[in-house]
Structures are given as C-alpha cells and as structure tokens.
C-alpha cells in the first residue's frame, strides 16, 4: 500500500499548474487527495507527476456573485459545511455536505476535487446537477465554463479537457418560498452512498409549485435529473400521489447500477422512495414547516 514514485510540483498560480499539466499527459492535479492518494496507495493510479494546487490562494473562496454563490475549487468541504453564506443561500448544498465522508476527510477534501473526481455517489456532483451549477476551468491561458449537466458523462468521467484545471463552481441561488430536501442510504453513516436524492422547490403564494429540481445519485453512472417528473409536477400541489406517480414514471426505464452491496432493483426502488421524500421535505420546508433531517447531528 505504497504509492509508486512520482515527481512533485507546487505551482504558485493557475496558469503555471496548467502548463505543468500540459507538459506531461501522465501528470495529475492533486487537491484534497482524499480519493487520489488512496488510489495511488492501491496503485490504481500511477501519475508521473503530482501538481499540488492546494496553496494557490486564488482557488479558495466562497462569495456571492450576482445571483449565484461562487466556490473556489480548492475550498475545503469542512469550510463549505460551516459557511454562513452557504447555509443561507444554498441550503441544499449545506444539507448534503455533512454526508460526504467523515469530518477528517472533509477537513482535506475539496469541492472542486469531488466534482472533478465525478464519483457516481458523490454528493457535490448531485447538488451541482440539481441546482444547474456552472463549473469554471482554465486551459492554455483561457477561462472556460461548462454546465454541470454537461460535465458528468460517466463514472469518474467528465468532459474536462486534458490539460485543464477546474477553478471553481457557481451555484444559482433561488429566491421566494424555497424549500430543499436531501436523503441518502448507505451501509454506515458517511460511507459511500447506495442512493442519494435531492430536491429543491419554489412555491407560489397559492402553494402551487413554481419551480422544481429533482435528482438522484449513485443510481446511474452520473447524477440524474428527473426532468420528466419536474415537468409533470410544475404547477401542482406536490401531493403524495402526484409525486409518487411522477417520480416512479421518471425512474421506470433507467438502467440502475448494481454491485455487491446493492442490486439494480434495490437501487431503483430506494431511488423512488428517497426522491419522494426529498420532494416532500422540500415542499414542507417551503411551506415553513419544520422537517428533521435524518441521521446527521448537525
């Protein structure tokens, strides 16, 4: 369980990191390293060079930018977890973050690292897709953007071009009567998810659904928006029967992941349940009701 030898660079800026990355196709960027270092220990990853972006100050921030909250790529998950701006403006992200790994891995793990790693079970990826976040990256001296929905294309596979460094992510902030819901099922608290579900709704003054986003994670190769369910539920009251029908319908034909821990059939069944609960929680919170989160103490 020791990593193979590699060269180590600690660039001072983003463009220097990009240049180092472009110069060696077997080089890898390291941020929090909470997946990469384990992969290297198991020799599932053998980069020739690690480009450590942890000390590039310009990549660590949380700030309001117009109607969004922008988070720098190397912002630690534990920092996001405790950030008052995130709690106030991105309650869905705040709700999901404590489910990532453990406190000791959130202390190192970064938002950008989780997004670039693109694990199908990753909470950050799920929330980015749910909220239609926009990811920013830098490649050959130019800045680019990509929608979260176009970024994740497979398990641990993204559309980030070779030689590009993810620099940050912007989450749109919803206003009005907004509520959020997040649910996860795993073997042990904070272990990899078997199924995750997230929902955010905005209700009109009449209590009807004005805007809704629903996603499930760890069920398919990358986070999946339940667009057909969103279409069906918009304008309605989000009552139990309607939500059940819409969510069941949206997940009817999916090809769910299967492994030793959870069969495809199980994942699909749980995904329907969790998506229903996430929508119900989001609706109730938008109505001002108090809904207890499961499992996590904070």
């Amino acid at each position: 369980m020791k990593a193979a030898p590699f060269e180590y660079s600690r660039p001072a800026g983003i463009d220097e990191a990009c240049a180092l990355l472009a110069a060696d196709e077997s080089a890898r960027v390291i941020a929090g390293g909470q997946t990469l270092v384990a992969m290297m220990a198991m020799r599932l990853a053998r980069p020739t060079r690690l480009i450590d972006i942890n000390r590039i100050a310009a990549l660590s921030y949380i700030r309001a930018e117009k109607e969004t909250i922008a988070i720098g790529a190397t912002t630690r998950q534990c920092v996001v977890e405790r950030d008052p701006l995130v709690a106030a403006k991105l309650p869905l992200l705040a709700r999901a973050i404590p489910w990532i790994g453990h406190a000791a891995t959130r202390a190192r793990g970064t938002i950008g690292g989780s997004l670039a790693n693109a694990d199908p079970a990753a909470e950050c990826a799920l929330i980015a897709v749910t909220l239609d976040a926009v990811l920013a990256y830098r490649a050959s001296g130019a800045s680019h953007e990509v929608a979260a929905r176009d970024f994740f294309i497979g398990p641990m596979i993204t559309t980030l071009p070779a030689g590009a460094v993810l620099t940050g992510v912007r989450f749109p902030v919803w206003s009005g009567k907004v509520g959020t819901g997040f649910h996860e099922v795993n073997a042990r608290q904070s272990d990899f998810a078997f199924v995750t579900a997230a929902a955010q709704v905005e209700l009109g003054c009449d209590g009807a659904c004005k805007r809704i986003a629903i996603s499930v994670g760890a069920v398919t190769d990358f986070p999946m928006r339940l667009e057909s369910a969103e279409q069906q539920l918009k304008g309605g009251k989000l009552d139990y029967a309607a939500v059940k029908a819409a969510v069941t319908d949206a997940l009817a034909d999916i090809d769910a992941l299967a492994d030793l821990h959870a069969s495809a059939e199980y994942r699909k069944r749980v995904a329907i349940k969790l998506a229903m609960r996430a929508v119900a929680d989001a609706r109730d919170r938008a109505l001002g009701k108090t809904v207890q989160d499961t499992a996590h103490a904070h």
Partner: peptide, 10 residues
C-alpha cells in the same frame, strides 16, 4: 486528518 491520505511534502 488522515495522515495516510497526505504526502509529507504537502
């Protein structure tokens, strides 16, 4: 933090 998930140089 987990000291096995960090390289000493970091």
């Amino acid at each position: 933090v987990r000291s096995c998930l960090m390289f000493a140089v970091q």
